[in-house]
Design a binder for these strands. Sequence first.
RNA 1: GCGUUCUUGGUGAAGCGGUUAACACACCUGACUGUGACUCAGGCAUGCAUGGGUUCGAUCCCCAUAGAGCGCCCCA
Length: 436
Amino acid sequence: MIQKPKGTYDVYGKEGQTILYIENVLRALMDRYDYEYVRTPHFEASELFHRAVGETTDIVTKETYDFLDRGERKMTLRPEGTAGVIRSFIENKMYARDVMPVKTWYYGPMYRYERPQAGRFREFYQFGVEVFGSQDAMADAEVISIPVTLYKLLGLKGIKVNINSLGDTESREKYREALIQHFKPHLSELCEDCKERFSKNPLRILDCKVDHDLEIMKKAPKTIDYLNEASKKHFEKVQEYLKVMDIPYSIHPGIVRGLDYYTHTVFEVEASVEGFGSQNVLCGGGRYNNLVKNIGDVDVPGVGFALGMERLMTALRYEQIDLCNNTLDVYIIPFEETKKEAISLLQELRLSGFKADTDYMNKNIKANFKQADKKNARFLILLGEDELEQNLLTVKDNHTKEEYKIQKEELIAFLDEAFEEECTCEECGGSHEEME
RNA sequence: GCGUUCUUGGUGAAGCGGUUAACACACCUGACUGUGACUCAGGCAUGCAUGGGUUCGAUCCCCAUAGAGCGCCCCA
């Protein structure tokens, strides 16, 4: 038996329904925010990711799917979405648009060769946005508000927004220096991983779970103390905007993000649910004012974020949020001699907008009733010889268990009326109504 | 890349060296030739991830491989 590749998964059944539902919410949400959809290739020239993500990051050094195409070109399956979108932004000269900023969103699979684990796959789906052209803190705040709004629409409660600022290039460099000076005399006290980080990416030491409680960790300089005036002001504005949008947040000096390209605002949204697992960061992002310049020749600031669908799905499971619509309006129980009438009736119901199904397995009546229950059918229609002779339908309301004899011509009107009444009830409430 | 636990029908699983692989749910058939959650009688793994080895004998012990889960690193 051939199995799926390690770290991949199939989507079907309830999960498939849930994902389609979420994708619809995403689309509607991005429309409201007035963002434009961008789709870029799933593979790009390897060099793009080396430049964008950073030569030294783990993602580029040991996690990419690289291959040579038949023309000997070095290609890489995209490990993240930002690089491709920026490439597209430059290549399609979106920087020359008459409407600025350019606000984009993307959605699709990403690839990283990693050991699979909770909330981590080799092929995984990310939804993300990139906003180009604005330096304003309003853009930062808006970007942060997107995942927050999405999680709210889906009904997630246990989430926390953590923000920090790395400042501009000048501030960032000054801080980096300070950090190195701080840890240098204490290098021996740190864990093995942190010693590695010290030379590779000192900012990451702050993220360490092992050394978290160490005295020198607590005394470590904080990014926000090293911000210059302009950077500080920017960060304050972001916070001010978050407050007026009613988005609760906390400042975490520890979040520095792994990718090299961030400047100013960085943020993460985490699932703060007990027992969620170690991969509890649902989304992350921030501002990258130098990245576009590094990739192309245009100097355009940007800000964006990406969220992992798999982790979102895990969070929904943990909070026991069910977004599936597993009901059927009508289930027709056919008999051997009425199949023709049954399929014709089915067609009519579907044309009229009802979700309808029947039996294709020649099941007996008992099994049909059972199946109708499993499919959560609201109405059952029995269509047998008796009904055929009398030109009637036996319609059974599966809520009240009442049975009606109805003329075939009156069926649609009957159902319309029945569902009309239902619409005002609690059943329809919940998150999806807010999306109308 | 490292550590660790695991892999038995459609599903949940018992068995941990001895020849019919338990039990439950689901499913199918019939009692019941048109009304469902009851009852009863049947049926449903020639096989225990794959490949080797040890043994008179292996689902059970050993080795390898693959996959899954969890943690580290890193990230969404």
